[in-house]
Design a protein around this nucleic acid. Structure first.
Lengths: 349, 349
DNA sequence: CAAACTCCTGACAGCGCTGTCAATAATTTG
DNA sequence: CAAATTATTGACAGCGCTGTCAGGAGTTTG
């Protein structure tokens, strides 16, 4: 009786023979197809276990005309200063989790979103590897050219935080706007009413939603929007610093600064501290994203944790259903991470 | 005459027909095999271009019995606080670059190095996907169990910064020890002679080499090694803080602190600053790794930049030759990143 | 000029699996 | 209980490519 000898490859034939069924039935069991009698299934599973059979991916791929490979496509951070590394790692982690649960492997494909020919690049990738599905991260998920290119290949696509959603499309998004308003709740609870906002770059639609959430939050407490307290940043550290400089120069300065992302919040906080002011005693600072940096700052930054991993995880599992189900969207909730950079407002000042 | 219609799959037959050769000859051209007449090669290449033919990976994989997939296996950072995210991203970037140059795709496989069964986990992965090669990052690259498991599958393996190198093995390493001594050069040039060292966890053999480099450096200038200035850390931020505390408590304190990694250096710097001392005016601090954090500290940390991306890039290209060449090692040079946390020693104190 | 090479090319048999479809077994229905 | 329906299984033909090997073209040698 043949046992799994190291190096020996166990094929579906071996399993079929051992279980006294046809290879097709083994295939059914492996692929979790319906219409297999329970007793047969068990028999086959037992044979699989005892032989330690593992289906050969390449063969499955060729025969089934798709690769069981999920592509995770995101903007290449090589151009950035790598602040997004943590973000990418978390995306990968979530996607990997779902891939393992299904029968998939993960192919990562960073690409430079400023390049013209991403469309054809992705088409090549898809043709060559026969990707079974694609998860597209922002800002690529908001680029019509890219989305169209993928659609033209008929490859199932799930977009992450798409700006405008089209009908009949798969997507996963977060409640940016809502949770952004929750940050205002938090600040108001601490006694703040003079809350400034540093806007981000609008290319990322999601970042725009954060501003709307800020407005929602203020409205909820009948706080009047003060335009001088709303500064435009560009998502980068420096622009946060600059915005803080402008805010502190005002005759009436805010007691709290909420930035549309952590980098800008960090920049703002640095400026505030350098001016000899204390955070949070003199001014509270809050960000959005919960990047690694936010926990390394002193004081640690209050921010909003994006459930990035859960988003990609969900996206991949949607992909698994995509052949059988109608397109649908999904919202994964973000949550506040309250740390030391926000504190009670000192009205006594 | 058939043109590339979107969605239409172009097979090797189409190309063969167009170029008036057999499919085997097309295959030869695609795979860059020798023994094809130049004129034939050009004819085929022209046909490939005009039809935009792309070989089907799955079919190649099945027929050739290997996957053209390179596995990048590293320790799962999910357990860590993600400081290593930048490191992982850079590994991926380098590997991807080489993969694209060759005809490969990259499969990432983070795994938890503390788990018992990584060996069988990797064997499964290899059998299922028929990985053509593996790049193994530290600390996994130093675990005999893991290395043995991979060897047992006869899959080409390149280890990154392996501790002990075995004969007849592929590896890529950096000159940690040497460059570590260069950091001493740098500090001595600034006038320092009282240089403390914070050792790291010895599991990472490479980290041990950094300590040796420190000793080499001191020896070079006939500086006597002072044991009280050598503290043991565990690679984490806190242990750096603790070490600095011990160092500052000494009657004769060092004028510079060199830590075996950036996290510990950052911890040390935080403690120094909190004591009201200035960096670098009162004490210089240097690290090793050039993690993202090091550029976000204030002052920015002088450190050593590991050419991580180039290491993996090289590793993948070694893999490509591995079938034809004898195993060999390779050393990629690291370099100093001198920033604001190191400065002239003030002997006048 | 035949013999002995080397270089180039093509025919053909799979690689290990899945899709299709037909056959058979089990179950329900009138 | 026969007929109709549904559930379960297997035979077989590829999926699109590469490895093997044999044969033809081109070159060199004695």
């Amino acid at each position: 009786m043949r046992q799994s000898q190291p190096g020996q490859k166990v094929t579906i034939f071996d399993v079929a023979e051992r279980a006294q069924v046809s290879i097709k039935t083994v295939s059914r069991v492996v692929n979790r197809e319906p219409n297999v009698r329970d007793s047969t299934r068990e028999k086959v599973e037992k044979a699989i276990r005892s032989l330690r059979y593992q289906p050969d991916q390449s063969a499955r791929n060729l025969a089934s005309q798709h690769s069981h490979l999920i592509g995770l496509v995101y903007d290449d951070p090589e151009r950035y200063a790598l602040p997004s590394a943590g973000f990418i790692i978390r995306m990968q982690q979530g996607a990997l989790r779902a891939c393992r649960a299904g029968l998939h492997e993960l192919l990562i494909h960073p690409c430079d979103f400023s390049k013209r020919n991403i469309g054809s690049e992705l088409r090549s990738l898809i043709r060559a590897t026969r990707l079974s599905g694609i998860v597209l991260a922002p800002p690529l998920s908001n680029m019509p050219r890219v989305v169209r290119a993928i659609h033209s290949t008929n490859t199932p696509l799930v977009r992450l935080s798409p700006g405008r959603r089209l009908a009949q499309e798969w997507y996963v998004e977060t409640n940016d706007r809502e949770v952004s308003a929750q940050m205002i709740d938090h600040l108001v609870e601490l006694g703040h009413r003079d809350i400034a906002f540093i806007k981000g770059n609008e290319t990322h639609k999601a970042v725009g939603n954060r501003y709307l959430g800020y407005l929602d939050g203020l409205a909820r407490y009948d706080i009047k929007v003060k335009n001088s307290w709303i500064r435009q940043g560009d998502n980068a550290f420096n622009s946060g610093e600059q915005a803080a400089k402008e805010l502190l120069a005002l005759s009436k300065r805010p007691s709290a600064i909420f930035a549309a992302n952590d980098d800008m919040a960090a920049g703002a906080m640095r400026y505030v501290l350098r001016q000899g002011l204390r955070v949070p005693q003199d001014i509270s600072v809050a960000g959005f994203d919960d990047v690694t940096l936010s926990r390394q700052l002193d004081p640690r930054l209050t921010t909003i944790r994006q459930p990035v991993a859960r988003m990609t995880e969900h996206a991949v599992s949607l992909l698994a259903q995509s052949t059988t189900t109608e397109p649908q969207g999904h919202c994964v909730a973000a949550s506040l991470a309250i740390r030391e950079s926000t504190g009670p407002a000192l009205h006594s000042r």
